[in-house]
Design a protein around this nucleic acid. Structure first.
Lengths: 342, 342
DNA sequence: CTCCTATATGTTGACGCTTACACAATAATC
DNA sequence: GATTATTGTGTAAGCGTCAACATATAGGAG
């Protein structure tokens, strides 16, 4: 077995509790004994047992990460690694570890969360998505278990601590960016219409059009659940319009989706940005590697993750604070997929 | 506090140990009491406390995941999400959870591993990389702590349980695929030369050339540590060669690297596959989304992860078995970046 | 009817750590 | 020099679960 606090105590000729206090750097212990104990810890190669500590304190220093049910797809999106990096740094800073909820189906994941929570495996949870009518969210709220959400909750916005962009504004800004280049026929190609973010960016888009006095056209608004394949369908739908009604610019809510769009356009021999401009969202790594490099709205994904874990830890250590809402800024990164209308 | 085994015991009018036995489904307990206890568990909403259980059995049912020090880069590679999915499924099947070692620097990560291991937070570890002279590897070996490696260990190949492709064969196959199309001037663009996988694929390449009686040329072999940017440099270097010595085909050891190559070629108005053929490795999701879609060696990344966690769990539950080596098969997925030489 | 065996359940320490409380020794106060 | 703080350390009771051992009950063998 491993070396325990008792072994250290014996070696240093003190009581186990004293060793424990040295670990916690309790001011009641004299410098002299602290030195003595630390030396014993070093020579014995002692490391405190986290499990035992967790049991005694009722806290694990672990954060649970919950991905949407369709994690296959989610993992593939460049959003995931980046947000994970942010979460990881935020957690690491405060000495928290990250644990993933595994499972394929939504049912699996729900059970995983329940086990994590009731089993005392984690001190808090980060929800990496925002969904309408989410069982997990409801469960966590009922139990009053610390959690934060990345994205905007569908309900109870005031009551749920969350970290999000101002997606309405982002949609508006992106649209105005295109308007500013003289585009008037702007189409919107969004992801799953059930996601709050899609809806919000859309209303930003609508709002920008309205402000500019440009009528909203239903044919210009498309939703695609499957990002990579979706691009193709969307483009085909738009290109079936009569020539003079085809959009001169596209607002695409995900880089991955934009990549599909880009490829399909290239197959159709439509040149970006000469024939059509594209602005997308997320500013994934490959958005500068595409041809042409994509103008994209950088939503600071890293920051999203970082703030989420920091906030969660605050909540864990301070359960009575009121819920907070953090808005992470966005900015447009202009590359070569957008051009002034001819 | 939460409902404990004692509460259930009281409610069902039995001893705590009986409840414990019901949880473990011990055959010594009569069906009648089992029923009674289960009912009590349900009405009270009991969930066993994992921490306490871990302390009592000295096992956590958690697997630690260690990424290479430069996790920023690693996370971005599509390899990561896929292998993670595999790991996750393998772990989930046996009711294990995944925990990430967080930390930026190598030092950070090393300390994280030590804490995990000595702190008893995890039962085993998966190393998601293979590096020369790795401190962490050495540490785990010294402590005789269960772990498996994804990739091929640099030393002690026989002594370390690992899951890998036959990268020599993969390099050979890919090269022969190009040779079979009549290419003779084939360049090799690899990742970091310190990685075992790079070296092995290279020797597969060399071997294929030798078998075909084609001389090995040093100018044709390039290594790039930074995948996305590296593509550009490599192409530029090759294109400085006199026209009739330029390669007609490229073997690129990572899709990400290939993407950079593709873009640079396009900038230089060199057409793939008409002017030059490209075969790459990993078969990432976007390799079918590039222009043209990449011919790529699919190394079954998911399977790599899945086998790794399954193997690790076997080792954990059966520490005395000899180390095993699992080779995951690869296959060439032919798309449109390769063409017979003119 | 006693003794033994098999079956079903209860008792009691671990597991390694924290922490409230107890206590001893020293220092400060008058 | 007795009294009270102050400081430093020890004692022991948990935290929730498991498992070796102890015990109780019932059924069958003799």
């Amino acid at each position: 077995m491993s070396v325990t606090i008792k072994d250290v105590a014996k070696a240093a000729n003190v009581a186990p509790s004293t060793v424990s206090r040295v670990i916690a750097n309790n001011p009641r212990i004299s410098e002299r004994t602290k030195e003595k104990v630390r030396e014993a810890m070093n020579t014995l190669g002692y490391h405190p047992n986290f499990i035992a500590r967790s049991l005694a304190n009722q806290s694990t220093q672990v954060i649970g990460l919950v991905t949407p049910g369709s994690s296959d797809v989610f993992f593939q999106n460049p959003f995931f690694p980046t947000v994970l990096r942010g979460l990881s740094e935020g957690a690491h800073e405060r000495q928290y570890a990250l644990q993933l909820v595994t499972g394929q189906s939504e049912e699996d994941i729900y059970n995983g969360v329940v086990q994590m929570v009731q089993g005392g495996r984690v001190d808090g949870i980060v929800l990496l998505y925002s969904k309408v009518e989410d069982r997990i969210l409801q469960y966590l709220r009922e139990r009053n278990f610390p959690f934060v959400m990345i994205g905007k909750p569908y309900n109870f916005v005031e009551a749920i601590t969350h970290v999000d962009n101002d997606n309405f504004k982002a949609g508006l800004d992106a649209t105005e960016f295109l308007l500013g280049m003289g585009h008037e026929r702007i189409a919107y190609i969004g992801g799953d219409a059930k996601l709050v973010v899609t809806v919000e960016r859309l209303s930003g888009y609508e709002n920008a059009l309205k402000k500019a006095g440009i009528p909203y056209r239903e044919q210009y608004v498309l939703h695609e659940s499957f990002l990579l394949e979706g691009g193709k369908e969307a483009v085909c739908a738009l290109m079936e319009l009569p020539l003079d009604e085809r959009p001169t610019a596209l607002l695409v809510t995900d880089d991955l989706l934009a990549l599909g769009v880009l490829n399909t356009l290239s197959e159709l021999d439509i040149t970006v940005p000469d024939d059509i401009s594209i602005i997308s969202f997320n500013n994934a790594l490959f958005s500068e590697m595409s041809r042409p490099p994509l103008t994209s709205v950088d939503i600071n994904i890293f920051q999203l993750g970082f703030s989420a874990s920091s906030q969660l830890i605050k909540r864990i250590e301070n359960p009575n604070e009121p819920p907070t809402r953090i808005t992470v800024p966005h900015q447009i990164v202009s590359r070569f997929s957008t051009e002034h209308v001819k």
